[in-house]
Design a protein around this nucleic acid. Structure first.
Lengths: 134, 134, 134, 134
DNA sequence: GTGGTCTAGACCACA
DNA sequence: GTGGTCTAGACCACG
């Protein structure tokens, strides 16, 4: 399973934090399992066309947090520790994100009806892809 | 109508950018109309308990973009210029946001079904509040 | 009270770790008190003629460990938290260091008598300086 | 006489440098004599549970420095060359080590009195062991 | 003025 | 091949 990173370089959020978040979430969600090898620092830095140091910084912070294990000269692996997020915790994150979506729509004067339309559309797409992916 | 700012101090997104985005969107969405007065730098900085310079920086960037007008000694006002965003543009922003929501759910291993549940719940809430607000 | 750093650039121990250790020990030993301001990243990097990033890395790790607090745009300060090391812990560190001293002497075929001589000499010096310092 | 290595894997000092230092000092101090055979790369690597390459690297550097001789297919031996360190040089090393001990104690706020206590304790132990060893 | 992030590139340590 | 450290220097964020 290859991770797909989505970076927003000029969003103001540091790149290394975006990487951290995505790996953390992937590990929490089961996309990454204990023992899985992560791409090497060099490889990921080339993929994302960013500096190796930036990837390294992300990996080191993840290691400090116990999410991954770095074995010198060998590679970087998902930790065996308690990586999984509680369902409650995940739900909290998602609820928050949904709330922000509505706030943004409100600010933009974007009708909630239309937002619902967009959402359901995306839902159909995602659901279909999901089934295909199985 | 008082603007309600929602800041995430340690999200990595600079505070002044968060302010800019929210004022821009409020102006684009009609929450703010041409000529409306914005809170003073000092007032807003106290409300948000942030440094006045940060507010000032946001206002200056907004003025450069023609969104607002700063009249020295008088106050800060929403511009009369072409503030409105095209509907297409708004839709693009929202589509993007919705897409991100699904990506995050995917990464977290959060079921799309449950996400839909959360969304519809929030929709009901928002719709009700919306009606009250009228 | 100015901290005096002693770095051994080519000892194999990373510079940033040497800095961390010295600040940690200074805080543990009372040389640094809660609230004391540390030299700025730039200042310290110039003092030690090393790269600012290296100092920054040390400071960030110290902050993660709760030893110091970094206030953006303001400065870096010794934390108010429980910085003090237990006496037992300090004693452990020192015992270890003493043991290493003897091992090294043994390996070098350096007589323990002479080592004692050197030690007591250094002790007299240090004790005298200590009294002067009071 | 079997050498006893004391490695600190995560001290930041490269393992191979620790090995080099200890063999060099043992040779300088007479623990190892010209012609003595060193443990094989494989044996030592297993003893210390480190990678054979690491031992090999240490041996190669020691050979470059003329401390040891590697005879292919036969073994590794302490050189006949001028291995001995000048007494002055040894004293310099030890003085330095003692000085560091006091600096560390100072930083830790560890009383020199107590340090002296620890030292004399260790001295008694070492002296006794030394006599037994004779 | 403070600290934070990122890059490009060198060199080292470990397997 | 892996990751780790450091430098020089640019640019940003915050006060």
């Amino acid at each position: 399973m290859k991770l797909h990173f989505y970076l927003q370089p000029s969003s103001g959020v540091p790149i290394y934090k975006q990487i951290i978040k995505q790996i953390k979430h992937a590990a929490a969600g089961g996309l990454l399992s204990a023992g899985d090898q992560l791409p090497s620092v060099r490889e990921l830095s080339e993929d994302l066309t960013i500096n190796p140091n930036t990837v390294s910084k992300a990996y080191q912070e993840l290691e400090r947090d116990g999410i991954i294990e770095i074995i010198h000269g060998v590679g970087t692996f998902v930790s065996k520790g308690n990586i999984f997020m509680e369902e409650k915790e995940k739900e909290g994150l998602m609820k928050n994100a949904v709330k922000q979506l509505f706030t943004e729509a409100y600010h933009l004067g974007f009708s909630f009806e239309r937002l619902k339309g967009l959402f359901l559309e995306a839902y159909e797409d995602a659901a279909v892809k999901g089934r295909k992916g199985d």
